[in-house]
Design a protein around this nucleic acid. Structure first.
Lengths: 206, 206
DNA sequence: CCGGCTTTTGACCATTTGGTCAAGATACGA
DNA sequence: TCGTATCTTGACCAAATGGTCAAAAGCCGG
């Protein structure tokens, strides 16, 4: 009912363009400074629109933030949805790891936006976690447990496995500043793919 | 030279007590809302002191934040310093994992404070990372590489191994809000110790 | 109990910031 | 081309916020 993305036809071309401009600028600013650290003036400057104009398209700072988080949730959970119950368990999970790492490489701002929100106790995305994330994760955990029970994976706690995959992959985006100091690399440093593949292959191989 | 902790004798008893009160309150507030999200009034309320009184003990909001980060850095890096070059490689590293997880359990506020700071690009702790963290990590990486070369550990990229340990352990503190939704647990959920031990034992066993 | 010091505070200030509003500019179908 | 609906903005506002200051209160050795 409230899925904003599905009826984009209700927006004029100008609205579509400017809403996209604003959301992209907001992603930049929110992910770099957090919700309270970001200002409407920064978003205005980054989007090339005036502050009152931004308030014409969104009901306020919070509205922009919530809209962003809602839109991103889909993209964020996509890799987990792609896991194929009919596939080879080990390959499916390693592919998931690979896709998640790819997300850290291609969408670090999105990763940091989520991290910021969760760090502060998920005040604005909490309901989405319950309604979107939880069912999906429960489904995935059940699937993995089934694979374990069938002896197709080494015994592992599905929930903790998922946490470990999230943690290791998102770490490269969320802690990029620290990693940069230690490796000199700018984005995800060389060897991350191979390392994570080895880590989880060894854990999961029966 | 600038180590504030070493000459605590220069502070009166009242100063010692109130500075501690302020720093503890600030840790609470900063870790929950980030630097810009925290206000002096919140810190004042949480510490039981008046706002001007807080400014009597610290030069400003930023001074409190920097002081906090500096103090915490020591505690934060302690587990890595405890790794014994003369010990059994696998046991030493698994013990490090265990100690880091313990930190997430016992000092989640500290973990989130660091995470907040790094997420925003380490604007205030950057120099400390260079001067304190980097040499220590380089030392540890060299140590691990030596163990690998001696065949006492499975081949592994030391830097990525360290990142994975940080990521998986700190995840339980930094993403507690998300984990709470998914597991119902309040702090670090049951089974984290066993899971991480299995994860890294399998990776590192030659 | 005194005098000097440290500590505490109420009142105040300048700036930042999210948000409003009425008027002007622009797009666009008829 | 015209008129209406959409879009844009300069000026403005109230609240929040980091910080100041002079005066009051408390502490403590002599």
């Amino acid at each position: 009912m409230e899925h904003a993305a599905q009826d984009e036809s209700r927006f004029s071309r100008i609205q579509l363009r400017n809403r996209a401009l604003i959301l992209d600028a907001a992603l930049e600013v929110f992910s770099a400074h957090g919700f309270r650290g970001a200002t409407l003036d920064q978003i205005a400057a980054a989007s090339g629109l005036s502050k009152p104009n931004i308030l014409y398209y969104f009901d306020g700072k919070e509205d922009i933030h919530v809209t962003l988080l809602g839109q991103l949730m889909d993209r964020w959970l996509a890799p987990l949805r792609e896991v194929d119950p009919a596939g080879e368990p080990l390959e499916e999970l390693l592919h998931y790891v690979h896709r998640k790492l790819e997300m850290s490489r291609d969408y670090p701002r999105e990763s940091r936006l989520f991290a910021n929100e969760i760090l502060q106790g998920a005040p604005r995305i909490g309901p989405h976690l319950e309604s979107d994330l939880r069912p999906l994760v429960d489904w995935a955990a059940g699937l993995i447990q089934g694979w374990v029970d069938a002896g197709r994976l080494a015994p592992v706690d599905p929930m903790h496995l998922i946490f470990s995959i999230w943690a290791t992959t998102q770490h490269y985006a969320d802690f990029e500043a620290q990693i940069g100091v230690l490796t000199g690399a700018d984005g995800v440093p060389e060897g991350a793919d191979a390392h994570l593949e080895a880590l989880f292959r060894r854990l999961l191989t029966p």
